[in-house]
Design a protein around this nucleic acid. Structure first.
Lengths: 217, 217, 217, 217
DNA sequence: TATGAATGAGAGTTCATTCAT
DNA sequence: TATGAATGAACTCTCATTCAT
């Protein structure tokens, strides 16, 4: 009985928290962090300002919560999809596809995210920066690992795996960023998938498969 | 005589303007645009607030002046270096090198720049955003043109030149960004030059030098 | 129960609003609009500045609220008293008396009002000016109507009713103004009532009462 | 020789002073005292700000100088015209006519003046108020004297001469004020002359010419 | 627990006045 | 004497956060 009540309470708590996050996400994405006020967030979420502060101890914390939640969801998706294929090349292709697809489906959030990961207005001083940074680095490490595997299997050139990972992330983010800024996105973000896959995989793979050439000969 | 005085005045005016810009650049780079106050800028430049307003009519104008000046300088450098080599591949290599080198030498500014070109807090609404955006797009177009030339000369694959340009900029910005965020940069940014050149050029170039293969055959 | 609470809230809201208005009225009357700062108003009303801004969205709005409230109250008084007598002459007398009496009892406010209706710093450009101007013109029109009636009933000379109304207001305002400026008013403003009534009514009435003259004859 | 030079200097000094006053008069009349800046005045007068301060020690002093000069000119005109006629009634008529005529010809200035004499933003605290007040009172006293004469000669009723003078000034100022506020003044201000003369003189004169009535009897 | 009125420090900007040249 | 750049206090207004109800 008590258990029941406890659970319902928790469910409701979580629901309210989500409502605030949604409202804030929408506003941040429209107006940016600094030009969004707590009063606006509270009003949009249909709560009193004091109530918002029961759930988040500052505006900053709302911001980071939004980013964290989405980045974690994305991380889970990436893990799942990547584990379904075998070779490093295929895994990288999957990585590219999942990330672009996610951005495609969460345009509002990516407005915030892209701004954020580049927007070091935060990154340096606040505790916030560190948490987001860790999440970002987890993704980078994931790619770096794939590259490391590819090198070990002689599929990829010998490059610094981390530097390679940063480069791929840069291509993806830049592409996403440009697409997101368009007022009316023309075509899907997924159309860019092949370009990036081609560029990056060709760039990273060993020059030309000698085995194949020899076989021909 | 009068000419002399006029010139000295202009020199001094320019010097003061620069002092303000330097102070602001440093502060913006440390704390971001919104967390830097005019009072701080004035104090850092050792002027009264009113004096700062003689040179710039708003905080926004200081910000954009910093970005524009540097971006224009960079653009000039890029034009010069690129014109010294012949093939699209070599020109792209030069582009990558110049940009990384410039970032290496203007670390503080690039803190602002990277944040800025991604920091759509501006990009969308203010007149400011448009000017910066144009400068950025000029660079993108420059690269897109090089890619187009490479495609025409059969050196590069058939890709969308603009998408390719965005991808390269992404790689560069991401790499620069990561390097810039490091408190104590280990090694020079120039070390990354080869990685990016290799990745991008291999990615974009046609599969394998047919001439060589044929010879083998 | 809830109704109760709501009502008390509203009462308190109104009370606070009034406190601010009183404080502002006093300061405006002492120092004028431009030399009264929001900080002073807030301090005098014993509120934080932000609180003042909950009630009024600008300094201008405080100013206009003061003027409007009083002018409306005065307008109501005028309507009531004028309706209690019959002839245009008596109505004009009542008008003069009520206005002087009101000024007598709201010395501080009339400092503002007299300054205001002449203080075209506003009158011309801001929306504020228009509202105050309308209120003022309503009073002028009231008098003009009385004059028109008097002319129709042959009691008054044929003059332009509006010009006549402006002239009466001028006499009243000037008289009030001079009296208000005295640091320590000597005697009551009401003492002037007879002078103005006499001057204006004699000025406006048809030359000589024939009945009386005939009687003499 | 030296005398010559001295005189030219003085002439030039006076000329510059006038240029500043003209420029300021124009600006004050357009934008009001508080919304006119010293920079604007200096620019309009084609002097450096420091130069303006050689002639007037503050913005306030410019303001008062404008008012004083014009009021003194008006006072001289009034004295002259009034001395040309005989009876108090005629002198009052002349007073009314000269004042309206002067307002007609110095519309810009009267914008300032009317605002000023009612605009006690000053009147109370600054030395400025006192000087202007004295000039104003001199005019009032002039009229009061005329009324006193008329009373002594049995032409006018027994009223308080000063109160009567205030009343007349009120009528005049109010009429001028309303006319001045019109964007495009319809007709001349002189058209109002007769109304005011009639109203005031009929108001103040003894009831009906007894001599005439008696003669009839 | 939920509320939202109250807070007040701090923001960007202006401008009358001064003073070194 | 004339200049106008430099000054900095003062302005209006905002908003993240608190706390009495």
């Amino acid at each position: 009985m008590i258990d029941h009540r406890e659970k319902r309470k928790q469910r409701e708590y979580e629901a309210r928290r989500q409502e605030i996050l949604s409202a804030a996400e929408c506003l941040f994405s429209k107006n940016g962090f600094f030009k969004t006020s707590m009063a606006e967030i509270a009003a949009a979420a249909q709560f009193a300002m004091g109530t918002v502060y029961r759930f988040f101890k500052s505006k900053e914390e709302i911001y980071i919560s939004i980013v964290e939640a989405k980045v974690e969801e994305l991380a889970a998706l990436l893990d799942e999809e990547i584990s379904q294929v075998e070779t490093p090349s295929e895994k990288l292709k999957a990585f590219i596809q999942v990330k672009l697809d996610y951005a495609d489906r969460h345009r509002d959030f990516f407005r915030i995210y892209v701004s954020e990961w580049s927007g070091f207005e935060w990154t340096i001083k606040s505790a916030f920066g560190e948490r987001v940074w860790k999440l970002y680095m987890a993704q980078v490490d994931l790619v770096a690992d794939l590259i490391r595997q590819g090198i070990r299997s002689k599929e990829f050139r010998k490059i610094d795996p981390k530097d390679g990972a940063f480069a791929l992330h840069g291509m993806l983010n830049s592409t996403m960023y440009v697409w997101i800024l368009q007022a009316k996105p023309s075509g899907s973000l997924m159309d860019k998938r092949n370009l990036i896959s081609t560029l990056f995989l060709n760039g990273i793979q060993k020059e030309h498969k000698p085995s194949y050439i020899r076989r021909v000969v």
